[in-house]
Amino acid sequence: MDANLTLVLTGAAMIGCGVYLVLERSLTRVLVGLVVLSNGVNLQFLVAGGKAGEAPIVGEAAASEMSDPLPQALVLTAIVITLAMVAFVLAMAYRSWQLNDHDDVQDDVEDAAIRRLAESDEQSDSFDLSSDEPETFEQEGA
């Protein structure tokens, strides 16, 4: 199978940019990253379809001249799904902005709790609650 090097490199560059953006903290940037990423992946489908050719419509060209229609159908489906994704993530980013005045991805609650406990050197709340000796808290906490 022949692969189009330009398409491969363009796709790779887009996926790289997309991954970089997804690592950002703001949800809108994550969204832009996902869109770039998905378009990069769609290009890979065109690569997977083999060499370019005539439009795959019966009667327009000989079968041997046609490009492979299946990846094109797959890409179309993927594009539709990406559209739904953009709509949903935008709505979520907007809602997050409404509630918090920003759309940053927030800290994991448990992570933050554990970090705070570690900083102040405290017991976690799953510590044996039935213990009859509250003094041990003091010793361990001090």
Binding site: M1, V41, Q44, F45, A48
Partner: peptide
């Protein structure tokens, strides 16, 4: 999707 493209290729 990447996996699908690779498998198809």
């Amino acid at each position: 999707l990447v996996a699908l493209a690779a498998v198809y290729a």
